Every structure is written in C-alpha cells, then in structure tokens.
Amino acid sequence: MSINFDLNDLQAFRAVVEQGSFRRAADAIRITQSALSRRIEKLESALGVKLLERTTRKVSLTNVGRSFLPQVERLLDDLDLALLSVGDGGALRTGSLTIACVPSAAYYFMPDAIRSFHSQYPRIKIHLFDASANEVAATVASGEADFGLSFTGNLAPEIEFSPLLEERYVMACRKDHPLAQEACVTWAQVYQHAYITLGRSSGNRLVLDRALNGVPAGRESVCEARHVTTVLGLIEAGLGVAAVPSIAMPGAAHPVLTQVALVEPEVRRQMGLLKRRGRTLTPAALEMERLIRELPGTLARN
C-alpha cells in the first residue's frame, strides 16, 4: 500500500478526536473547516478505512479509528519530543504521556511526580489510567500506556517488572476501633471483628488469598469491594476493618483512619514499574520514570 498522506493529516485526525467536532478542530490547528475535512478524507482514502463517524451533532471514532488513535498519538508525540531534543524548544514542548496504575500506586506515587513533571513540561498532557492489576498489565502489553505501576503477579512474558518498593499489608481501621491502639494484630484477631474484603477481581485479593491459604477466617466479611479506596471509605463509615496495602493508607494526620501492623503471617508485596519488553520509552516517559524513582522510599534508583 502506498502511503499517500502526511503528518498534517495525522494531526488533523488527532485534533478532531480531541476537540470532538470539525469546527473546533479546525480552529485549534488554524485551518479552514473545509481544509480539515479534505485532510481527513485524504487519510481515510489512503488507508482504505473509515476512521470517523460524522453526524450533524457529533463526531465519533469507528472501531478501526479507535485502534488507530493510540498509534497516531504516539507517532506525533515521539516526533515532537525528538525534534525538541535537538534544539531549544522547551517553551513549545507538547505531547502526551499515558501511565497505567493500580489505584494505590496512583495515590502514593503520582501526585508528587505529576506536580514536578507538570512544572517542567506544562504542555505535555498526562493521561492517568487507574485500574486493576490485570488491566494495567494488559494496557502496557498492548502499548496503550507508556509504562505501568503495579505489583508482581502473573505477568505476561512481554512485560518486564522493575521493583520500586516492598510494602506490607496492614489493618486499616477507625481510630476509635478497639484494635486501633495495638502495636500489631494477628489475622485471627482481625477475624473476631466485622471486616471488609476486596473482591475476587482485585489483584490484592489474589496476593492475600495465596498468603493466607490455611488461615481460617472464622466468619464472613460484611462487604466486598473492588477498589482499596472504596474499602477505606467503608471503614471510615464504621462498617469494619480491612487488610490493605500500606501505601494506600492516608497519613497519620487523617482525622478518622489509622493502621496497625498485621502479623501471623506478615504479608508483603513488591510494587514496581511495568514496561513492555524491548520498547524504548519516549523522553517524556523517561523523565516521569526518573521522577517516580526519586520519590522517598523507593528501592530502585537506576
């Protein structure tokens, strides 16, 4: 197939998707609406597929267009950053960066890293995809995310894992709970109280089930939830206690919640970076990785 389109056509396609209409897209890239339409038609004709569905009210991606978009964004972002790396173009630096994170990693790592990154590169848009461990790994493997933040588990061969920190699971509870003042508690003690569990679709649930094989629960949980953040909200509302990863816990200054060490057994997990094996990160992704690795408490610095 001969390639009968250029970067301007790809930029037009991205603009339409970002703006949601041909009129706004034309204004954004400073061309006429008819010129924009010609660029989209040229791109679709060259590829032999329909990328956009157009009605009088809205523009939406076709299935092919939805698959094509991440590749276009990556190509244009890589080109922007490559050109800027050979000249003094900091004020013009644009592009996007996609990071897939399990929610606890997003809570712990990303606020400070994003704040620092944005202060240096304000025109690079950051897409934070917070999802389950399986979804994070799948997004990295497909190339939709530049890299991921998750914990070790059943990772596909094309994913490489680089540790950032090792953490333990703790009992989260209200400060007025009977166990709140203990130095540590056993799982048997936890099961004597109303407790909340993570649902079976949670990667944390898999880690805990493996570690606690043979430890009798004694009673049913009062509730299951998919995300740790939801569990913490239920605890704050007084519905019980729960085992959660320590990095998901708010600081000591939180007015309601606190944590107690869990023992017999102590359960730990490794949190780290997920990358697609053999893939070279963009300059923007490398800079974000550097900022994450320099956060206090990380194990890996290189």
Rank of each mutant, 00 (worst) to 15 (best):
R74M: 12
A82E: 12
L76R: 03
D88G: 03
D88I: 02
V86H: 06
D80Y: 08
L75G: 08
L84E: 06
G87P: 00
S60T: 08
G89P: 00
Q71I: 15
G65K: 00
V64G: 01
Q71K: 15
V86N: 05
Q71N: 15
L81T: 05
N63D: 13
P70K: 06
L61M: 01
Q71H: 15
L84H: 11
E73W: 08
A82Q: 12
L69M: 07
A82L: 07
D78F: 11
A82H: 08
S67P: 01
E73V: 12
F68C: 04
G65R: 00
S60E: 05
S67F: 11
L61F: 01
D77M: 11
P70R: 08
R74E: 14
D80G: 06
P70Y: 08
V64Y: 03
V64E: 07
G89C: 02
N63L: 13
D80S: 10
F68I: 07
F68K: 03
D77L: 07
T62F: 01
L84R: 06
T62V: 02
T62Y: 00
L79C: 11
D78W: 11
P70I: 09
E73N: 15
R66T: 11
D88T: 02
R74K: 15
T62Q: 02
D77G: 12
D77H: 13
D78I: 04
S67A: 15
R74F: 10
S85F: 02
S60M: 01
F68A: 05
L69C: 07
S85I: 01
L69R: 02
D80K: 05
L75N: 12
L81I: 10
V64D: 04
D77Y: 06
D80T: 09
G89K: 02
V72A: 10
F68W: 06
L81H: 10
S67G: 14
L84V: 09
Q71G: 12
D78L: 14
S67H: 13
D78V: 10
E73I: 10
S67N: 15
P70N: 11
L79T: 12
D78A: 14
S85Y: 01
S85Q: 05
L69T: 03
L81F: 09
R66Y: 08
G65C: 05
L83A: 10
L75K: 14
L79K: 13
V64Q: 06
S85C: 02
P70F: 08
E73P: 06
G89S: 03
G89T: 00
D88S: 07
L84M: 08
S85H: 04
D77A: 14
V72T: 12
L76Q: 05
N63Y: 09
D88E: 09
R74N: 11
L61Q: 01
G89V: 01
L61N: 01
D77P: 04
V64K: 04
S67T: 13
A82F: 07
V64C: 03
G87Q: 10
L61G: 00
G87H: 07
R74Q: 13
L61D: 00
L69V: 08
L76W: 04
V86S: 06
L76F: 04
V72G: 07
N63M: 10
E73Y: 11
L76A: 04
P70G: 10
L83D: 10
F68R: 02
L69K: 04
L61T: 00
V86D: 06
L79M: 13
S60C: 01
V64L: 05
A82C: 05
P70V: 06
